Amino acid sequence: MWPDFDGGSIVDLMDSVLRSRGGHAAGPGLRDVDVSGWSDARTVVLLVLDGVGMAQLDLLPEDSFLRRHCAHALTSVFPSTTAAAITTFMTARAPAVHGLTGWHVRFDEPGLDGRVLAILPVTPRGMPDASEQTLAPDDVLERVCRTPSLFASLPGDSCVISPADIVDSPFNLRHSAGARRIGHDGLPDMLDQIDCALRVPSPPSYVYAYWPDFDHCAHQRGAASGEARALLRAADVALGRWVQAPSRRDTLLLVTADHGFIDGPPQRLIELEDFPLLADCLAGPLSGERRAVFCHVKPGRVRDFERALQALEPACTVWRSADLQAAGRFGPGTPHPKLLSRIGDFTLEMRDDWTLRDTMPGERGHRLVGVHGGTHADEMRVPLVQLVI
């Protein structure tokens, strides 16, 4: 399943949110969702539950809050992952435009010279000593991020409520520019902070709130594990109780997710080091995600690379990255000028529940039980809850 950028994706959701708050939207917005009353809301609250896709709602009882109020399913972006999707939520632009195409992104801007960075913490990979990074995170983001925050373009006040440990991170500072920032210490505190923002005499026109805990648990324990199930049910109960509190003065609550999840069994994890002929063709570390892998090939080694890929044939579909970009898989809009250099020569779309990773010197080869980033429906489909509270 590829993203539905014809009115059914989180990009289209953000166009509708932006237009309802008096901003200028790049696209027409959602196709099958009645948004006619959104502009009447005094405040729109967008609550993003990281990793809580449509498949994850099946972990909940039928009478749960999220299942009862979920009227629509949207798609994420490609890759279906936090770095790409959260940037879309905070800029209202697709990955093609904002250019952040996965947890790991390869940059060839001056001073970066083909290094692969984990873009959310802005840390390099493939370097024995991280102190060798010559640019500060703020400088890196200034060079590689061209798409402005959506909050700065809104005529009304905005508020961003994020975990306390990232609310003032370089990435968050840049992408929440124009909004007031508030840190939270978990779901109950986040809901309290939303209430505080809403119950002042002049509440903000738009509140964006982000909860990462399910994603963390699913990566470590599995998306369908007992721990993930218990965490999600507790969150659902808390949300259900919260919306029953006294009226918050014409507030529209929207709940969605950046992506869903599947579990990746260890026997379906491919280690690049086990395929030396393939690794020898690469011009640097892999980028993207374990489920959507971008490969930069050494000059003159394309044919060797294609032959070596035959060993992975059951596990992935191989695409020329430029063909995916031309087909609009990274979304609508004028492409980021560095998009093609970031997605490399080839994209490996991992099939079923396969994953692929490489481990660079100085990196810990940590296991991820729950995974995402690919095109499986359970990774791609996310809910949309809307109700007036």
Rank of each mutant, 00 (worst) to 15 (best):
S176W: 08
T123S: 14
L324Y: 15
L47V: 04
L100I: 15
I166L: 05
S39K: 08
R301L: 08
L57V: 12
E273K: 13
P61I: 10
P203A: 11
V207G: 13
V44G: 06
D63M: 04
P314T: 12
W38Y: 04
I182Q: 13
P124S: 07
T91Q: 01
S9M: 07
A25S: 06
P137N: 04
D352T: 07
G370K: 12
I161P: 02
P79T: 06
G53I: 06
V140C: 09
R68F: 11
A164D: 07
V44W: 00
G178H: 09
V35N: 03
T101C: 13
P79E: 05
P188E: 14
I166D: 09
V33G: 03
D157E: 09
R357Q: 13
P163C: 12
S9C: 02
L100S: 01
T87V: 00
L232D: 14
C281P: 10
V77F: 06
V388P: 01
M1S: 11
Y210R: 08
R199F: 09
M14F: 00
P335F: 04
V48D: 01
M360E: 13
D139Q: 13
D12W: 00
R181I: 12
R19W: 06
H366A: 06
F65I: 07
L368R: 11
D108W: 09
T334E: 13
P246W: 09
M350G: 06
A85M: 02
F346Q: 09
S202T: 15
G8R: 00
A224G: 08
L269H: 05
I343D: 08
D108S: 11
D139A: 15
P79K: 10
Q56M: 10
D258G: 03
L348G: 09
A230S: 13
S16Y: 06
T147P: 01
G333E: 03
P121Y: 02
V369I: 15
A26T: 04
T134N: 13
P299L: 08
P61N: 03
S39L: 03
I343K: 12
D63S: 10
M90D: 01
D250S: 15
I86F: 04
L387H: 13
A218M: 11
E62C: 06
W354V: 14
R367S: 08
T375E: 02
L356G: 09
G51S: 11
R307M: 12
G300K: 04
G288D: 12
E271A: 10
S321Q: 04
R301G: 03
D358K: 03
C217F: 00
A292G: 08
L74Y: 01
R303K: 07
M54C: 13
A228P: 07
L339R: 09
D12R: 02
A26Q: 15
H175Q: 12
L18E: 00
G111S: 14
T81Y: 06
A130V: 15
V52H: 10
I262D: 01
P128C: 05
I194D: 00
R146S: 04
G178P: 01
L277V: 00
P121T: 10
L46G: 12
L312M: 14
W211V: 14
V207K: 07
Q310A: 14
P265C: 00
T334Y: 02
H104A: 10
